[in-house]
């Protein structure tokens, strides 16, 4: 009797530490933030002392041109980064999916940029983009081209390039894994039927990889909204607001302008955006599962 009781409690005992920590340090803070976003909240006050102002923070933000610009910067950063990384990453995977010596060494070198601290990545690129001592401008100078104002007039582009450098390998590795797990029979059949390389890619490889590619792209999209340190070190959001993504603006609103309520409301806008993307990912994987189940059922009926 006692033994059965203990067995019934086992899963809860295994879950308990994780649940306690996540409630204390993740869910409760998130609720606290939602609550705080309805208040005019200064860092020196406790949340109880802060005045309740209803939706004021949200409405102010909605009409704030700076917030809108920052939102625009965030969206275009995420869009360009994910698009270019998907194109380059998948392209490279298709190109390098060959039986060559030293592939594992190659993959090791490619994941290096992802593992290094974002702060350090920002530091390296800030040096390379430096107007006078930087690597790029020196190189341009030595071959007689005019120098480029990387972190000035073209700041957003420069930041996007740095992110592409850091995260394209992620897409590359995942799509290479997807490519190598494709059913050999389909490719074999296409080759026997005389499909050219391009035809194989467009009609067989890409459609079969699609589920993995979509999930990868959405994961990368979610991560693109988390980028902060690289940009902070490279440009600190400037010049002007040209590279001030939302994450950076939240941290500045909280620490420099000392408006915790507004920062909380801004965080909520960002969360809602991300929630939307995550739900899309869920819906997609569910749909995918249902479709494979249906296909399998159909195949079984045929037999």
């Amino acid at each position: 009797m006692q033994r059965a009781m203990a067995n019934r409690l086992t899963p809860y005992m295994f879950m308990a530490p994780a649940v306690v920590i996540m409630v204390i340090a993740l869910l409760y803070p998130l609720g606290y933030m939602v609550w705080g976003s309805f208040r005019d909240w200064d860092p020196s006050q406790t949340i109880g002392e802060a005045e309740f102002v209803g939706l004021k923070n949200y409405i102010t933000l909605w009409h704030d041109p700076n917030f809108r610009e920052s939102l625009g910067v965030t969206l275009s950063f995420a869009f360009f980064v994910v698009t270019f990384e998907m194109i380059i990453g998948v392209g490279l995977a298709l190109l390098l999916d060959r039986n060559i010596r030293g592939m594992s060494v190659l993959r090791t070198l490619f994941i290096l940029p992802m593992m290094i601290a974002p702060v350090v990545v920002g530091l390296m690129w800030r040096y390379m983009y430096h107007p006078t001592v930087g690597t790029f401008n020196r190189f341009f100078e030595s071959i007689g081209l005019p120098s480029v104002d990387w972190l000035g007039a073209n700041a957003l582009m420069s930041v996007i390039i740095a992110d592409i450098w850091q995260w394209t390998p992620f897409i590359f590795i995942l799509s290479l894994a997807a490519l190598q797990s494709l059913p050999r029979s389909a490719l074999e059949a296409a080759r026997i039927d005389g499909a050219t390389g391009w035809q194989q890619i467009i009609h067989i490889k890409l459609p079969l990889m699609m589920p993995v590619l979509i999930v990868t792209g959405l994961l990368r999209l979610i991560d693109a909204f988390k980028v902060l340190e690289v940009i902070l070190v490279m440009t600190e959001g400037g010049p002007g607001l040209s590279t001030e993504i939302l994450a950076l603006r939240i941290s500045r609103t909280a620490t420099e302008f000392r408006e915790l309520g507004v920062a909380a409301a801004m965080s909520n806008y960002l969360l809602i955006l991300l929630l939307f993307i995550t739900l899309m990912m869920f819906a997609f994987t569910r749909w995918q599962e249902m479709r494979t189940n249906r296909l399998r059922a159909a195949a079984e009926e045929d037999e």
Binding site: Y12, Y32, G36, P43, I222, K226, I250, A263, L270
Partner: peptide, 30 residues
């Protein structure tokens, strides 16, 4: 194990994966 609340726990786990550190900044600081 199959236990009560298993589905909601695993759903929550998945959802909070998307939370950016910047969003946690304000509440955690407070």
């Amino acid at each position: 194990f199959r236990f009560m609340g298993r589905d909601s726990v695993s759903l929550t786990t998945l959802m909070v994966r998307m939370v950016p550190p910047a969003v946690l900044l304000v509440p955690v600081f407070g």
